[in-house]
């Protein structure tokens, strides 16, 4: 259930960003990037989001989760690619010396908003 504490931080961030960048707008959607190495259950995260925004000015908005695959770069032979099945060994040279490129993401990427046309 760490999704709830992650989501609490998310909702605070979304509110603050909305207030700062588009104080008059209505939020339609918030997009978050979640790396596959993160053990975040998408359904739990969206459930927590809906529960937390209910009754606030974010109510009615949805949460979109963009999954980011685990990729790495080999420190020995410079191979770059996707890491499958949690197997952090270079497929080209069998080195264990892999540096993670993506997969640890956990951030708010964008907000989709609806604004009234200026009169």
């Amino acid at each position: 259930m760490h999704e709830l504490s992650i989501c609490t931080a998310l909702v605070e961030l979304v509110s603050a960003e909305l207030q700062r960048q588009a104080p008059e707008a209505k939020l339609l959607k918030a997009v978050v990037a979640v790396g596959d190495l993160r053990q975040v259950i998408p359904e739990t995260l969206t459930f927590a989001y809906e529960a937390l925004v209910a009754g606030t000015r974010l109510a009615g908005s949805t949460l979109e989760i963009r999954h980011v695959p685990i990729t790495a770069r080999c420190g020995s032979c410079a191979w770059e690619g996707a890491v499958g099945e949690n197997y952090f060994i270079c497929p080209k040279c069998a080195s264990h010396n892999l540096d993670l490129l993506t997969g640890r993401e956990l951030h708010l990427e964008s907000l989709e908003v609806e604004e009234n046309e200026p009169k």
Partner: peptide
């Protein structure tokens, strides 16, 4: 009414970190 996208790049663990 017009729809627009606001780019943000903020880590969710910000306060914890």
């Amino acid at each position: 009414m017009s729809r627009s996208e606001i780019k943000v790049y903020r880590h969710l663990m910000g306060e914890n970190d």
